[in-house]
């Protein structure tokens, strides 16, 4: 499992059946300030289930901000965010936490492992807020660690692991709840090039297995190896390899909400989703 990714260049065995894993429609994020900072300036992006996407762009172009908005860690100032067909941008903080626990997995540049916990315990934390029993969490964690090639490091603590191994633990933690969407912000940013390559291979493997992954990266080699690239500049999509050359800078239609790639949110759950809760915004 830990060897190089399958040579058959991934063309994703996905046949998008349900709603897209992720859809951003005219997402604007403005940070208040003396001149307010418009970190996201009308982003439209659709990611189908099973896609492996790289997001690149110069520093400060809004990549991390977008990842946070996609992962419901932050709310857009305007526009809408759909995860697996659920509109999430106006849910209460409590509901957003539920979305994160079940539908989204995060991988960070700094890993953010808990120093006192072993690899298994760290990975099991990925299920801590899902109501899963401790025994099942552990079993799932062992499985996830085996999946990322760390079956032999179950009981090591972060300080006993190499950087690459730590990032694998973090990736296992992001995967353990089997989320709809895995979001990685510079997953190889703290790793040397050889270790980066092995993480790259792992991402390809996971993609082969069907995971939907979005990777923000400065690493051109990594970005180029992924099936799809989206380039950011000044808070909007400058280029999207899925849309040919230009990323159709969202000018298509700003008034009609669904514009790119048949969005049509599943109406089944819609009623209990769009309950705005102004009492506790993040």
């Amino acid at each position: 499992m830990t060897t190089v990714a399958s040579d058959s260049t991934p063309s994703a065995p996905t046949e998008p059946t349900g709603p897209p894993a992720l859809q951003l429609i005219d997402v604007v994020k403005e940070y208040p300030g003396v001149p307010p900072v418009r970190a996201l300036d009308g982003v439209n992006l659709t990611v189908a289930e099973g896609e492996l996407t790289a997001i690149v762009g110069p520093s400060g172009s809004g990549k991390s901000t977008m990842l946070h908005v996609m992962g419901t860690l932050d709310r857009p100032t305007s526009g809408s965010v759909h995860i697996a067909g659920h509109e999430v941008s106006r849910l209460s903080d409590r509901r957003l936490s539920a979305v994160r626990s079940a539908l989204v997995g995060f991988v960070f540049q700094q890993f953010f492992l808990l120093d006192g916990d072993s690899a298994v315990d760290n990975v099991a934390t990925g299920l801590l807020y899902t109501g899963t029993s401790a025994r099942k969490r552990r079993a799932a964690a062992v499985e996830a660690l085996e999946r990322v090639g760390l079956g032999h490091r179950l009981h090591h603590r972060p300080n006993e692991l190499s950087g690459g191994e730590r990032q694998r633990v973090a990736i296992a933690r992001a995967l353990v709840a089997r989320p709809t969407l895995v979001l990685a912000d510079e997953p190889t940013g703290n790793l040397d090039s050889r270790t980066s390559e092995s993480i790259q291979a792992l991402l390809h493997e996971l993609h082969q297995e069907g995971a939907t992954i979005i990777v923000v990266t400065h690493d051109n080699e990594l970005a180029d190896s992924l099936p799809r690239q989206v380039r950011f500049r000044d808070g909007s999509v400058e280029f999207d390899s899925a849309n040919g050359t230009a990323g159709a800078p969202s000018t298509t239609s700003t008034d009609a909400a669904p514009s790119v790639g048949e969005p049509e949110p599943t109406e089944l759950q819609l009623d209990d989703l769009t309950e705005p809760d102004p009492t506790d915004g993040p």
């Binding site: 659920h86 409590r94 509901r95 807020y129 899902t130």
Partner: peptide
């Protein structure tokens, strides 16, 4: 296709 959205984490 579309996981149902849990009401809240626990």
């Amino acid at each position: 296709p579309a996981k149902p959205l849990p009401r809240s984490s626990s």
